[in-house]
């Protein structure tokens, strides 16, 4: 692909992204102190509350002034500040290598932009690349300094193999321990279905965002004649004779498929967003994802 070597993010856009931060509707515990206030009471400088001392509590947090005044032991609780797990699940199956720019390139751009936002906010960014299994992973990175690592990782991604959402996400949920935001970048065109795969994610109580990326050719096919359609992933063939009714039917099916996916996501608190490779990804990040509340 010609656009694999193109820079994923341009500096101007990076400047805009710096102003943003990732928002999680759920507050998750991180291993390291981050820049994020947790629902948990923890070890930060911001006071949150008191609680009665029970045996075993850390004596360092006893409020000695209160003990002197009330002769009772109270433990000072502080607002816990946590770092955020930000998982990017990127589909690199062969079907993503389609369109101009390719869906994969588009997905990489989105992944890069969101990762950058996460890095800037000291979030723990993890990128998992999958097709029918998880093929490549970028171990958790933090901090702005890791941006180049992320970009380098994304830049080197190639499309390969068939997709299997279910297996891939199952593996992902098994191996990842932390909770956090999961961004799933895929075309969701899995003949096995996406339901089971998403259920695995839901079960782990991630804050899930599904961004379905489709190419313009899929949304509005401009093909003519008697054709043998060959599936790029599994070589499956479909013989069609393009006609008005068939195209109409295809579009109806596509709309129904998107509708079903959206319905599925809404019911499970998953944020669903459909985009095409022709939608400028800056607009997607700055406008659509903001509206969905992923960034602010």
């Amino acid at each position: 692909m010609t656009d694999t070597q193109a820079p994923l993010l341009d500096p101007q856009f990076l400047g805009k992204l710096e102003q943003l931060e990732l928002v999680s509707r759920k507050i998750f515990r991180g291993l390291m102190k981050g820049e994020r206030r947790s629902k948990k009471k923890g070890q930060s400088v911001e006071f949150a509350d008191y609680k009665n001392y029970v045996k075993g509590d850390d004596l360092r947090f006893l409020d000695w002034n209160l003990y002197a005044r009330l002769d009772r032991l109270f433990i000072r609780l502080f607002q816990e500040e946590e770092d955020l797990h930000f998982y990017v699940l990127l589909d690199n199956s062969l079907s993503m290598d389609f369109g101009n720019p390719t869906k994969l390139h588009y997905a990489r751009q989105v992944a890069a932009a969101l990762s950058f936002i996460g890095l800037c906010n000291m979030d723990r960014v993890v990128i998992e690349v999958f097709n029918d299994r998880i093929t490549q992973s970028l171990p958790a990175v933090r901090g702005r300094k890791s941006l180049w690592r992320v970009l380098d990782f994304l830049q080197k991604l190639e499309s390969a193999g068939p997709s299997n959402l279910r297996e891939s996400l199952k593996t992902f949920t098994m191996k990842s321990s932390g909770k956090g935001i999961v961004i799933l970048l895929s075309d969701m065109m899995d003949k096995e279905g996406y339901e089971d795969a998403l259920r695995y994610l839901v079960a782990r109580q991630y804050d899930i965002y599904v961004i379905q990326i489709l190419s313009q050719e899929e949304l509005d096919p401009e093909i003519l004649g008697d054709l043998k359609l060959v599936d790029i992933e599994d070589e499956d063939e479909a013989e069609i004779t393009v006609s008005g009714p068939l195209i109409k039917r295809y579009k109806q099916n596509l709309a129904a498929f998107q509708g079903a996916l959206q319905e599925f996501c809404n019911r499970r608190g998953i944020t669903y967003l459909m985009t095409s490779n022709k939608t400028p990804f800056e607009k997607l990040v700055m406008s659509y994802l903001r509206q969905r509340g992923l960034v602010r």
Partner: peptide, 8 residues
């Protein structure tokens, strides 16, 4: 005429 598509 065969033509490749992302998914059939």
């Amino acid at each position: 005429k065969p033509i490749q598509v992302p998914s059939t």
